[in-house]
Simulated scan of single mutants.
Amino acid sequence: MHPAPGHRLVDRVEEALIAFILGAMALITFANVVARYVFNSNILWALETTVFLFGWMVLLGASYCVKKSAHLGVDVVVEMVSLSARRLLALVAVAVCIAYSFLLLKGAWDYWANFANLPQTLGRWFPLGFEENFRPKAWYEVNDIPNPAMLNFLETLMNDGDPYEKLPRFIPYAVLPLSMALLLYRFVQAAILIWKGRLDRLVASHEVEDELAEVRAQRGEEV
């Protein structure tokens, strides 16, 4: 899926964030191994941090794979029909994906919102407004990750001036609405490309077939 110039900023931010998360996970894990086996110590917050980073990577990776058409898919039926039928099937599929990712976005917001002192949405399937009375939960903290000094301003803003000993939970949980919004954005992008005739399916990659063809070529077999 080739992004238009207006979408390149989102692409770059997404790719840079995923790369940063991978690097941070590797660095923290390596530092913890060195601390444990060389200095007989332990970085207490390392495990929880890598778990959160891994969650961020998986959730952001879901939308990234939509952009790259890298999700697993079965296209046996798609290959058997005409181009116009393929486009129709693709439009039906992407419509279902858009509806599903919209529901995921609503659920993600509703789960995260109270942790950020924000109201959840009303309505079971479609947001019908925001709740008026809710219990703010911004005082919830993670288990081990200390709150960095540069985030102390959040104590006045989110916690009535009470100090945070650990990182506020709404910060790592923010990936839920963020990633679902990106997923919805990517499916809308795909729908536009299908409508314009630039794609005829959601899953356009055939990595396994390409790899098998490469292996056969190396062995001198017919591809």
Score class of each variant (00 low, 15 high):
Leu151Lys: 06
Arg201Trp: 04
Leu167Phe: 03
Lys106Val: 13
Tyr164Leu: 08
Gly161Ser: 07
Ala108Gly: 12
Tyr164Phe: 14
Gln120Tyr: 02
Ile194Cys: 12
Val175Asn: 09
Met150Ile: 14
Leu103Ser: 11
Tyr111Ile: 08
Pro177Lys: 04
Pro119Tyr: 08
Trp195Ser: 15
Ser179Phe: 01
Phe134Cys: 09
Lys106Glu: 11
Tyr173Ala: 11
Val96Ile: 13
Asp162Ser: 13
Asn152Met: 02
Ala191Phe: 01
Ala149Lys: 15
Asn152Val: 06
Trp112Asn: 08
Phe126Cys: 15
Ala181Lys: 05
Ala190Asp: 07
Asp110Arg: 01
Arg135Ile: 12
Leu122Ala: 10
Asn114Asp: 12
Leu104Ile: 01
Tyr185Met: 10
Pro148Met: 05
Leu122Lys: 15
Trp195Glu: 13
Leu154Phe: 01
Leu184Gly: 10
Ile145Ser: 09
Pro168Gly: 01
Leu154Gln: 07
Val96Phe: 04
Phe102Trp: 09
Gly197Arg: 00
Ile194His: 03
Gly197Lys: 00
Glu131Arg: 13
Asn133Gly: 03
Asp144Tyr: 00
Phe102Tyr: 09
Ala108His: 03
Ala93Thr: 11
Leu118Ala: 08
Phe153Arg: 10
Trp112Ala: 04
Leu103Val: 07
Ile171Ser: 06
Pro136His: 11
Leu118Phe: 04
Leu178Ala: 14
Glu131Asp: 13
Ala113Phe: 05
Leu183Ser: 14
Leu151Arg: 10
Gly197Gln: 02
Val94Thr: 11
Leu182Lys: 06
Phe187Trp: 04
Leu184Tyr: 07
Pro136Gly: 02
Val94Lys: 02
Glu141Ala: 10
Asn147Arg: 13
Phe170Ile: 12
Leu105Val: 04
Ser179Tyr: 01
Arg169Glu: 06
Glu132Ser: 07
Trp112Tyr: 15
Leu182Glu: 02
Cys97Thr: 05
Val94Asp: 04
Pro119Met: 12
Lys196His: 03
Leu118Ser: 02
Pro172Cys: 08
Asn159Ala: 02
Val96Cys: 11
Ile171Arg: 03
Trp195Pro: 09
Val188Gly: 11
Phe134Met: 06
Asp160Glu: 13
Ser179Asp: 02
Ala191Pro: 01
Tyr100Thr: 09
Lys106Ile: 10
Ala174Pro: 02
Phe130Ala: 11
Glu132His: 09
Glu131Ile: 08
Leu167Gly: 07
Gly107Glu: 06
Pro148Ala: 09
